[in-house]
Design a protein around this nucleic acid. Sequence first.
RNA 1: CGGGAUGUAGCGCAGCGGUAGCGCACUUGCUUUGGGAGCAAGGGGUCGUUGGUUCAAAUCCAAUCAUCCCGACCA
Length: 585
Amino acid sequence: MRASQLPLFTSKNDPSDAQVASHRLLARAGYIRKQGSGLYIYLPFGDMVHRKIVEIVREEMNRFGGVEVSLPVITPAELWQESGRWDIMGKEMMRMHDRHEVGYALGPTHEEAMTDLARSFLQSYKQLPINLYQIGKKYRDEIRPRYGLIRCREFTMKDAYSFHADDASLDATYQKMREAYRAIFERCGLKTIPVEADSGNMGGSGSEEFMVASQIGEETLLLCSDEACGYRSNQEKTEFISANYGLQPIVSGAIEDFDTGELKTIEEVAQLTGGAPRDFIKAVIYEDAAKIIVCFIPGDRELSEVKMKNLAGVNDYWLASEETIKAVTGAEPGYAGPVDLKYKDGDAVSVTAPPTGHKKTLRIFFDNHLKGRSGLIAGANRTHFHKKNVAEGRDFTITEAHDLINAHAGDICPQCKKAELTETRGIEVGHIFKLGKKYSEKMKLTVLDPNGKPLTPTMGCYGIGVGRTMATAIEQNHDERGLVWHKNLSPFLVYLVSLAKGDAETAFVDKLYATLQAHGISVYLDDRDERAGVKFNDAELVGFPFIVTVGKKTLESGKIELKLRRSGEKFELSESELIAKLRGD
RNA sequence: CGGGAUGUAGCGCAGCGGUAGCGCACUUGCUUUGGGAGCAAGGGGUCGUUGGUUCAAAUCCAAUCAUCCCGACCA
């Protein structure tokens, strides 16, 4: 392709709203352009890269047994109502109505739609397993679109859904998808870290995320420092284990209230008493429309909202209001504790005064690391007072302890139980998980088993963000001059800089352009009437793997200049040497 | 949704009571021509929108919309 046919959209200025390298450079190099918050135009080069990733994904999905289909972007509300997610998905799901006031969603994901398709044609266990996938646009009204292609409101996703007669079959497909994902990211030249993950509100059990390590990553990953162990996990999922709480002596002594005045925070009270934050019981209180959730954890740690949310079974929740806290503890916020709490787990608490008297169910959760401890300091459920010498088992009892805390670097690996964890940040580009029967049951998908009895298939679900893959490829591969593409993703293999003047030189360039193409090499010929510097700069900005320069010097020496974009290495080659090099012979 | 900021030419920005400016880009001409050319001449903005204050508003006030940043969602 020639620049005179397919123009460059490069710019000298960085867009003012770009915060990260991939966004800044993709915009400046003319691959993408923002049209609205979280909405991007793919310009010619951007679209070409996007299509290459799609094709890689498609080939690998097909190779590992996927069956491609294409579902409508707009999904009927009744499917979402069947699964119960019409109300759960919240504002993130964009909704619309047709002229008859029938509701629809702009599909943020397609479990329901795909399960609906499956039940329309699956009748026998003999048709299982089957892995249906599509590559198409998804819409999510993100709270905060960010980082260019990394967090958009419209994005292309490959989403696959597998259906199985039993767990062994699901396991087999899950393993195949793990292989497929490794192959896909490998071909894209992306280094990914597969980690154990939380399965979120999709439901299900086993789950693995494919992460690209990056400082701008929105996920925290915990990796076991012992490579032999090899444990890797998303913080949301990582079980928190610490030895810091087990080694302490049993502290006896009578429990007593003491006046802490206006001091509420653990730091403040610790200063007053001289105690360490780890000897405090921190109370964190949330509520949703129907529940109040009180979590007690060691004072030096932070609650994992994801763990709390999964445990409590809530989705749309918030930090408890002052009124709610008063209703539960009888005190101002800042003095909640497990001892002398008016209510117990499961009680109904009035959060509004009579006569309305709206009631919510109280849930109380304790963290594992409070079990068996004594000498603790906790809120007294009495304004201005805390309790000291609190002992679990005597002053309050934990019947069921949970994992409620965010693990961090320095905590103990939950797999080998020995080595410490280290932390890194990551961007999620792919996610595979075992869904189980959540959707097949809700949507009444059944097939007949060998005995002629109905069988509800179990499901798996596998996603890849295409735009995100493109953006992270650049996050990993760029320099101050611009983009650096892997040859499998680059719009063209070669950027041919023509510095030709006059007919003879132009004829030489045209011939070389034709020759390279005849050898199956994709070439972008910069035949613009621009100065050399402009072309060199654009060549480096757009980031194709090879930059070939032809001008007066070439005709004089007979040698063609080749520059490798990534390393900057230069070669002077004959035409046949050049072709061999470009073809990787 | 809470906290912070910004909307002025295609892009990046200045101007912050007296009627619109800079760099890049664009158009034309001449020169130049292997690392973002020089000179000259041009074109382009109801200053996000609406309302108010004022003799006078891009500038002050209010509302509204949009965008971005910091926190809770996800491929």
